[in-house]
């Protein structure tokens, strides 16, 4: 067991807790959401539970940030984005305020609760707000890097954090400025899977059993990433697969397409993402939901 073992939320929020205790400018705000690591802070004056009232939650954080405070807001990703979109766009983003929005429960991480709880469109929804940067946390290592530097990340930022023990690539050196990393490199530069968040794990597992033919690129930052470097890598591979738990229009696909268009890259790309629809199927198991939705490793393998 190494120091990054454990639930990815614990890795992330334990660092947040340490920073919060040290820096009295930090406030933590939530919409009646609970994470284990922050339970002990609930009686602190700088911990604000606004209740099930996301619009007010975001407005309070905006007001705090205007006067130099450093609010960290956490809650369910679908509610922290869709429910208070105008407040995010206008009160946080238009003022370019230093507010960190931490969305928990991305993708199908709560598969039993239906489309209200599926975080499959929130990425592009937030991408549409010009001033907001987005980080999608794929693993414990990246969670550790981003959370340790939370106060150094300037401006309005949306950070998606998954759940479970995602400690499968602790040797990767993530560079937050660069915004992407090859997390599995094959000897041959035949196939590149571009993915993000939870699906990095699936893609890495598949690539590592594929006879050194498949590399995996984790795109974890969506606005100011090194686009030239990203395109350069894409050009090196014969075949590109975009693999995303988010929907076709709501996730990384249109973001990557924007870069491909800008740099005039004409390359055939295979796509495996969630469909553009709200899914009213209820599964108790995320892996099962993903495979039943045609997004599992078996489906990815067919594209190789």
């Amino acid at each position: 067991m190494n120091k990054l073992d454990g639930d990815v939320r614990d890795i992330f929020f334990n660092n947040i807790k340490k920073i919060f205790i040290k820096n009295n400018k930090n406030f933590i705000l939530t919409n009646d959401s609970d994470v284990f690591a922050l339970k002990s802070l609930r009686n602190n004056k700088r911990f604000i539970d606004a209740g099930v009232a996301e619009q007010n939650l975001i407005n309070i954080s905006a007001g705090l940030a205007k006067f130099g405070k450093l609010p960290i807001v956490y809650g369910f990703c679908s509610f922290l984005t869709f429910r208070c979109y105008e407040q995010l766009r206008f009160n946080i983003a238009s003022h370019n305020l230093n507010v960190k929005i931490i969305g928990i429960g991305p993708g199908f991480s709560f598969p039993y609760d239906g489309p209200t709880h599926h975080g499959t469109q929130d990425i592009y929804l937030m991408y549409l707000i010009p001033e907001i940067e987005i980080y999608n946390i794929s693993d414990n290592n990246l969670a550790n890097e981003v959370s340790k530097k939370i106060n150094k990340i300037k401006g309005p930022t949306y950070i998606r954090i998954d759940k479970g023990n995602l400690n499968y690539n602790q040797n990767i050196k993530y560079n937050l400025d660069k915004g992407y990393e090859i997390i599995f490199k094959s000897k041959k530069q035949n196939i590149l899977i571009i993915t993000s968040g939870f699906f990095c794990k699936y893609a890495t597992e598949l690539a590592s059993s594929n006879n050194n033919n498949v590399s995996v690129l984790n795109l974890f930052k969506f606005k100011n990433f090194n686009k030239k470097g990203f395109i350069k890598i894409i050009k090196q591979y014969k075949k590109i697969i975009i693999y995303d738990e988010s929907s076709e229009s709501g996730g990384i696909l249109p973001i990557i397409n924007n870069s491909l268009l800008k740099y005039k890259v004409n390359k055939k790309i295979e796509i495996l993402t969630s469909p553009d629809k709200q899914i009213f199927n209820y599964y108790q198991d995320r892996d099962l939901m993903i495979s039943k939705s045609g997004l599992g490793k078996r489906n990815l393998n067919k594209l190789l």
Partner: peptide, 28 residues
């Protein structure tokens, strides 16, 4: 707030936001 920075405390245009923002102001 961009051109009369010292005198205008908040952007306006969309209604219903100010009381919530004032809570943040008040706590700060």
């Amino acid at each position: 707030t961009f051109n009369l920075t010292k005198h205008v405390d908040w952007n306006t245009g969309s209604l219903g936001h100010s009381i919530g923002v004032c809570i943040g102001f008040a706590i700060a």
